[in-house]
Design a binder for these strands. Sequence first.
DNA 1: CCTCTTATGTTCGCAATCTAACAAAGCCCC
DNA 2: GGGGCTTTGTTAGATTGCGAACATAAGAGG
Lengths: 268, 268
Amino acid sequence: MNNTQLNATDKTTAPRMALKSKEFKLASRPVVSYSGTLQNELLAALPRDVLESLFEHLELVTLPFGKELFEFGGAMDYVHFPTTAIVSLLYVMEDGATTEIAVVGHEGVVGVSLFEGERAMCSAVVQAAGYGYRMKAQHLRDAFNQGGALPALLMRYNTALFAQMAQNAVGGRHSSIEQKLCRWLLDRLDRSPSNELKVTQEMISIMLGVRRESITAAAGKLQDDGLITYRRGNITVLDRSGLEAYAGECYKVAKTEYDRLLVDVARC
Amino acid sequence: MNNTQLNATDKTTAPRMALKSKEFKLASRPVVSYSGTLQNELLAALPRDVLESLFEHLELVTLPFGKELFEFGGAMDYVHFPTTAIVSLLYVMEDGATTEIAVVGHEGVVGVSLFEGERAMCSAVVQAAGYGYRMKAQHLRDAFNQGGALPALLMRYNTALFAQMAQNAVGGRHSSIEQKLCRWLLDRLDRSPSNELKVTQEMISIMLGVRRESITAAAGKLQDDGLITYRRGNITVLDRSGLEAYAGECYKVAKTEYDRLLVDVARC
DNA sequence: CCTCTTATGTTCGCAATCTAACAAAGCCCC
DNA sequence: GGGGCTTTGTTAGATTGCGAACATAAGAGG
């Protein structure tokens, strides 16, 4: 556990990987559009008038692998609504040890959880290249303060995020590395367009806060059991329900909360 | 780690302990009063007109040790604003393993983090007997939807709670048991009226999700180092800054976030 | 096709924590 | 002031994951 661990990945591996991940680009490159925003479920859940009022502030951006949307202690000028990208909220300890606090994809928003806090208490790193909409945090704050459907929606999203973080805390203490790996894969899968994940074992180890060798061992076992196959930075999930069974309750509980969020949202 | 662990504590130890903890009762028993509500910092931070509109719905209640304000999967009809009481958000796994997700005292509110979710994703248990104000969740929801200072305040509180949960996840993976114990003691201390905590090592072990023997060992070491003294369900903190130094960054980061919450709140 | 980088596989010993069983106090209440 | 329950102390062996060092292989780019 040394300080070079994340840096090495961040500054060296990350940009290179970003160039490689062509799979995540949409078939036809999207433009800023009303329909485009609907690819983010949180935006899609807003009443049409609210979304329209936000629309002028939204900007479609590419989110390359490894990009830091904000870092620990830094300012959070923008919030991001991922569409095809996946973003990790990561905490890096002073000694270099890392832990993934939460993961955000097309179901959520990055930065609003830290609303009004001027400084981030963790960093946000793009884990899977893709697209997302961003807007100045101040505009979202203004919209929040105007009331309507937005405040309640964000509060509800926070509830689901809470569940995810809570299960991270629980699983971090009481799950085996294999279980954690299963859950991590499932969380990505839920936010990915395919059953193929472009990620190295080293990256996974950083996210889970374990050694790379432990991931090698765990992944090997999952492959032997026919749940996944992998080769050099590429994991394919073969048996989703098998993973779910192995992951145990942590995944299930958090997933249930997200599903409920969407159901509740649909009622609006 | 068996299923009887929490139950034994809950149903048997808890009521007994509650009867014992006389220290936490206020010198003169408070009545529902405007000034009483100010003992909760979140309520105190509300503009006078907002607080007055909530006031009629607030009810002063005693919160005896061990009382479950809500349980996993259960309904959350009330939100609670502790004044002298301390409440743990606990998750109990199917196999009986436990983890404390967060702790709430006079600085916060229990139940609102799970706003609009009809089912709780963890249980809330009174850890230190005392008082608190409660109100029907629906009334708070109504007030939230009316806008004004309340939505922003709750959002800000969520930010601080996020920081605490995040550090729980981080520390759960990367701290020694002794460090976790230090941090846990400090978190209680911040919400307690004195430097004496009424809690058994067994209770602590349940909160931290470790074995009781590990707490015995860790507490013994802290006592040898002159940081605390203890005897049968009673821990006295002797050297707060010593504990902080030992606890490491997790405590510091979360504390900073709460301090900022209060500063921001004071600006309102 | 060859090379060089990066990703994955493997090993050994070590430290922390857990499981399990039992011993010794301390404190409440009769 | 003594019985009985609760809390704390102690030990021994098993397991999981860590640290470090190195071996192998896959694929990108020349």
